[in-house]
Nucleic acid binder design. Structure first.
Length: 598
RNA sequence: GCGCUUGUGGCUCAAUUGGAUAGAGCAUCUGAUUACGGAUCAGAAGGUUGGGGGUUCGAGUCCCUCCAAGCGCGCCA
C-alpha cells in the first residue's frame, strides 16, 4: 500500500462566503494599518504595533514599549508621539496613552454599526468558510461491546461531537469514526454466556442497556467454572479462526450493543450513526500486511519472543528502547497492531489530512509511539497530521476519579438521567405554565446541555469535578444561564409579534455603552470560532458564549427594546436577533440545544 | 528511577499564547423589582499565581531547581 495521490477535496466553498469577512479580524486589520503608519513615522522603520483586545479599552497597542527600549526614550513619550501621528478619527472615538506606555483604542459606535449590520445580514454570522478544506477523521466515543458506557466515554463523546460540529461548520470534510471495542479475549466468554442464556434473551438484555449485568455474569462464570473458562478459550480460537457459527453469535452481541449505544447517542443528541461504527475488528484482515510492511521497512524486531517496533525517542524505566508490541509471543495481535492498521488505513486509504484521536490523556504515550512509527514508515504525507486530542478525568466531589458508592464506575446514562431529572424538577418549579411535553423538552435540553457545558468549559487536558448542583445552577457559568438569556430574547420576539410588528433585521445603530460592549462581543464570534477550530480549546468558545450572554443581560437591563421608539426600537430588535442567533449557533457547535421558552 | 499532566482567592474555573492594578462564577455582604421572564442586574470584600532562583522594558505564562498530586512506563485496550 502506498500513500498519496488521487484525493480530491470535497469541502466545497459556499458561493455566498465569497467576500465574507470576519468582522473583528477586519477591524483589527484596519486599526493595525493606521497604527503601523504612525509607528513608522516615529521609528523611521516598520514596527509591529502589537495590537490586541484589551480589558482597559476595546483594543490596546503595546508596540511602544519594545520600541522605546530600542530608541532609548521613555515609553510613554514614544506612545504619545505615535498617538500624535495617528490618523484614526473615523474608526475610534477615543485614543489614550495609559500605564507604562500602552495605547488604548476605543472603537467608535459608528464603526461598529456597519460591522454588526453586516453580521446580522449574513446567514453564517460573518464566519468565513475555511479557505483550505481538508479531510478530517475524528475518532471518538469508542465504547466496548457488551460493556456499559461509563464516564470515561462521556468526555470522548462530547469533545468528539463538538469537534465534528465545528469542523463541519468550517467547511471541512469530516469523517466520524466510532472505534468500538468489538474484538479480543473477552469475546470467548461473552459468546459462551450468550449461548447459555439464549440468544434472544441476551440480545434483549443488552439492547435495553443491562450490559453490566451481562458482562459481570460472564466474568463470574469464567472465574468460577473451569469448564466454562475452557469453553471460552476455545471459543476465542474459533472466533479468530473465522468459524461461521461463532461469527454469527459475535455479530449478535455487536448488533445488540450498537442498538444500545445509538439509543444513548440519541439521548445525548450526538451525531453518531450506524455508518460511523468502525470497530477494531474491521482492521483484522489488515494486520498481517501491517506486519509485512513493517518487516519490509526493517522496523520490526524480535524481543522476548514478541514482534516489536522501537520508535525513536522512547525509553523504558531502564533507559532501554521502548517497544510497541505488534505481535505477542504466542502470535496474537494487540491494540498496537490495530492502531497501526487503523492509522495506515486512515492516511493511505481514506486520504485523511488530519486525524483526531479523542482519547483520554493516559494513552498519550501510546499514541505518540504509534504516530512516530507511522512517520518512520512513511504513512504521513508532507501536510498530514495526526493529533491526540487528550482529555483529563472526571472527578467526584472527593477529588478522586468519579466512582459510584460501591466503588464501581458510574454508568453514563445514570448521570444523564439524574441531570435531566433535576432539570425537570427545576423547570416545573420555575415555570409552572409549561405543559408536560414542553417540560420534557426543556428538561432534556437543560439537563444534557448542563453536562456538556460543564465538560467543555474547562481546559480539555485538566481533570474536572462533576457536580450536579453547580452545573445545573441557573445562575453563574452554566448552560441554563445561556439558555435563559436566549429564552428571554425570544420572549421579546413573542411580545413584539403579538403587538403586530416584525423584526426587520435592518440597520443597527449603537449608542448606549451596554450596546457598545455587546456589539464588540458579537463581532468577536467569527474569530473565536476560527481559533477554536484549530486549537480545539472548546472552553474558549464556552467562555466566549458566557461573556456574550452576560453582555446581553446587561444590555437587557439598561436598554429597553419594546418600549423604545422608531429606529432605536428596530435597531435593538436587530441586536436581539443577532445575539440570539450567535448564542444558538455557538451552543449548537458545542452540541447544546437552545430553547425559545423554558 | 524515568516520562507525561497538573498546582491560581473558601470552592469551581479563566487569563487574548510574554503585556497594565491576575479576571469570572459560586458562596459571603450591600443595594435595585409600577420597563421586554428576578432563572436578573449594579456594587463590595476576598490573591506574595506551590517554594526559591534566573532570562527582560515586562513572567501565572519561558529556563533551572525543589515540593505536592494524578497518570503512564512489554506482550490488556
Amino acid at each position: 500500500m502506498r500513500c498519496g495521490g488521487g484525493f480530491v477535496l470535497i469541502g466545497k466553498a459556499d458561493p455566498k462566503s465569497v467576500g465574507r469577512l470576519d468582522p473583528m479580524a477586519t477591524l483589527l486589520e484596519l486599526l493595525t494599518e493606521r497604527l503601523a503608519a504612525a509607528f513608522a513615522t516615529v521609528a523611521g522603520e516598520a514596527v509591529d504595533p502589537v495590537l490586541r483586545e484589551s480589558q482597559h479599552a476595546d483594543f490596546q497597542a503595546d508596540g511602544a514599549l519594545p520600541l522605546a527600549h530600542r530608541l532609548g526614550r521613555p515609553p510613554r513619550e514614544v506612545a504619545a508621539s505615535v498617538v500624535e501621528a495617528l490618523e484614526i478619527d473615523d474608526l475610534c472615538s477615543g485614543v489614550d496613552v495609559s500605564g507604562p506606555g500602552f495605547i488604548n483604542l476605543t472603537v467608535s459606535d459608528s464603526a461598529l454599526d456597519g460591522l454588526l449590520t453586516t453580521m446580522a445580514g449574513d446567514d453564517r454570522l460573518a464566519i468565513p468558510v475555511t479557505e483550505q478544506p481538508v479531510r478530517v477523521i475524528v475518532d471518538y466515543s469508542a465504547p466496548n461491546v457488551a460493556k456499559e458506557m461509563h464516564v470515561g466515554h462521556l468526555r470522548s463523546t462530547y469533545i468528539g461531537d463538538a469537534a465534528v460540529r465545528l469542523l463541519e461548520f468550517m467547511g471541512h470534510d469530516v469523517v466520524r469514526e466510532n472505534h468500538i471495542g468489538d474484538w479480543g479475549r473477552p469475546f470467548g466468554m461473552l459468546i459462551e454466556h450468550l449461548l447459555d442464556v439464549g440468544e434472544s434473551e441476551a440480545a434483549a438484555e443488552i439492547s435495553i442497556g443491562d450490559l453490566d449485568g451481562f458482562y459481570k455474569a460472564a466474568n463470574a462464570k469464567f472465574d468460577e467454572d473451569d469448564s466454562f473458562a475452557e469453553r471460552s478459550r476455545q471459543r476465542v480460537v474459533l472466533l479468530q479462526g473465522g468459524d461461521e457459527q461463532t461469527l454469527v453469535l459475535w455479530r449478535t452481541l455487536i448488533d445488540a450493543s450498537q442498538r444500545y449505544f445509538l439509543s444513548v447517542y440519541d439521548r445525548l443528541n450526538v451525531r453518531l450513526t450506524p455508518d460511523d461504527f468502525a470497530g477494531e475488528s474491521s482492521y483484522n484482515d489488515q494486520l498481517d500486511s501491517v506486519v509485512d510492511e513493517l518487516e519490509a521497512a526493517g522496523l520490526l524486531r524480535e524481543s522476548d519472543g514478541a514482534m516489536c517496533v522501537f520508535p525513536e525517542g522512547f525509553t523504558n524505566r531502564d533507559g532501554d528502547p521502548l517497544p510497541l508490541i505488534v505481535r505477542n509471543r504466542v502470535g496474537g495481535y494487540g491494540y498496537a497492531a490495530t492502531d497501526l492498521a487503523t492509522i495506515r488505513d486512515r492516511f493511505c486509504k481514506l486520504g485523511a489530512d488530519r486525524i483526531l484521536y479523542v482519547v483520554g490523556l493516559p494513552q498519550q504515550q501510546h499514541f505518540e509511539m504509534v504516530f512516530q512509527v507511522a512517520k518512520e514508515i512513511g504513512w504521513y504525507t508532507a501536510d498530514s497530521e495526526a493529533t491526540h486530542v487528550g482529555f483529563g478525568s472526571i472527578l467526584g466531589d472527593d477529588g478522586k476519579m468519579l466512582r459510584s458508592r460501591a466503588g464501581k464506575s458510574v454508568k453514563l446514562i445514570d448521570l444523564i438521567d439524574e441531570a435531566v431529572d433535576r432539570a425537570r424538577r427545576a423547570a416545573t418549579e420555575k415555570n409552572p405554565d409549561l405543559d408536560e411535553a414542553e417540560a420534557g423538552l426543556v428538561a432534556t435540553a437543560v439537563g444534557v446541555g448542563a453536562t456538556k457545558f460543564a465538560d467543555l468549559s474547562t481546559e480539555r487536558t485538566k481533570d474536572y469535578v462533576f457536580d450536579f448542583d453547580r452545573m445545573l445552577a441557573f445562575d453563574g457559568h452554566t448552560a441554563p444561564y445561556l439558555q435563559y438569556a436566549n429564552a428571554r430574547i425570544h420572549s421579546i420576539f413573542r411580545k413584539n409579534e403579538a403587538g403586530g410588528s416584525v423584526v426587520d433585521d435592518g440597520a443597527i445603530v449603537i449608542s448606549e455603552p451596554a450596546e457598545h460592549k455587546l456589539a464588540i462581543r458579537l463581532t468577536e464570534f467569527a474569530t473565536v470560532v476560527d481559533e477554536v477550530s484549530q486549537s480545539l480549546d472548546f472552553h474558549r468558545l464556552a467562555h466566549y458564549l458566557f461573556d456574550l450572554a452576560s453582555a446581553f443581560t446587561t444590555f437587557y437591563e439598561h436598554c429597553p427594546v419594546l418600549k423604545a421608539d422608531g429606529d432605536v426600537r428596530a435597531s435593538r430588535l436587530s441586536i436581539c436577533r443577532v445575539t440570539s442567533r450567535t448564542l444558538s449557533q455557538g451552543l449548537d457547535l458545542l452540541g447544546i440545544d437552545v430553547l425559545e421558552r423554558m
